[in-house]
Design a protein around this nucleic acid. Structure first.
Lengths: 183, 183
DNA sequence: CAGGTGTGAGACATAGGTGTCTCATTCGGG
DNA sequence: CCCGAATGAGACACCTATGTCTCACACCTG
């Protein structure tokens, strides 16, 4: 009876990721509740988006925690990060898209912190001599988001098998396309 | 006096890439014309989007032509492609996003053809031994779009210098993050 | 069984965008 | 210079989504 808030947000993320203009009515029906009930739990569309952001950021933060970015070599940490991120890839794609269209508004502070944590991983890899230094940590962070988003989309479209996703992202990011001698 | 159709579409692409719900009025003002004039040149919002798609696909096709994907080694061809694509990166980002939200509808045939041409380049690189074979051409194609989109966004946000963009994308894609011995 | 709670269905006014129209103005060519 | 074509400004009706409200119903509890 009691509405499953988590489930509603999950459905909302799935719909809003694919089409930013999805109406409250469509979200409600997808979640199996009435529009009135949706409004009882979320004051309005803005409140729903905000709750979605906060949940997404929290989930991403937990994924980063689990990846233990400070431990071991940076390459291994990056692999762990990609692996832990996979379950929340859809949410992450929604988040990074959402941040883009927040042109004028202030970007969520929590998001900036996560950004910094990812960026620090790349910087560590450079300082330890594992990562090349001609690509800035900021760019690598954006590239990671881009690849995660592209991967989520590719899986959704059936272009990439879900089982291959982590390998596809991690290998491309770490080793690049070019066939390497040292493999 | 005569409205510069190219310029209008360019402005529209820039706005719509950032916010899919940008109103006709905002697009008109950004292009420096009145809403009435905008409607005189494009029957409606749908027609504008369609014209945008067609122009974007045409521009992207020309970029692919100029890159001469069949000539030389695949790596060099990929670098040329990224270089030629740079001026239309915003448009390309809009296109790939647009294709994503065309859930039910049929995807533009021209787009599929361009997809196939990019994919063929990656396949050629694999067959010639230049590219690794554990990443599918389809995934590499999606990854390329994702990185181009991420790059356009990063430049827009000031995270990456415009002059570094081509290098950042090409090097990451070809060589990956990991510091390589063979460099 | 009675009362409280949460929900679905629907009505309602409102806001905002859309598409069409009219009219005055401006620009450029003949 | 004058006329026509193109444009800008604004009015207008229409549509869709939103947010709020009311009412009836189901369920659970005491």
């Amino acid at each position: 009876m009691a509405v499953d808030r988590e489930q509603v947000l999950k459905e909302a993320a799935a719909l809003l990721t694919r089409r930013a203009t999805t109406s409250m009515d469509e979200i409600a029906r997808a979640a199996g509740i009435s529009r009135a009930t949706l409004h009882r739990h979320f004051a309005g569309r803005d409140a729903l988006i905000k709750a979605l952001e906060e949940q997404g950021i929290a989930q991403f933060a937990q994924a980063i925690d689990r990846a233990r970015l400070a431990e071991g070599d940076a390459g291994g940490a990056l692999r762990r990060l990609i692996g832990e991120t996979e379950p929340v890839a859809d949410m992450l794609a929604f988040l990074s898209t959402e941040n883009q269209l927040f042109e004028g508004g202030e970007i969520n502070a929590g998001w900036l912190e996560l950004d910094a944590r990812i960026s620090a991983l790349f910087r560590r890899g450079q300082e330890e001599g594992d990562f090349r230094i001609d690509l800035s940590p900021a760019w690598l962070t954006e590239a990671l988001y881009g690849l995660i988003g592209a991967g989520a989309w590719a899986v959704h479209e059936g272009r990439v098998a879900r089982n291959d996703l982590n390998h596809s992202i991690a290998e491309l990011l770490l080793g690049g396309i070019r066939r390497s001698m040292e493999k």
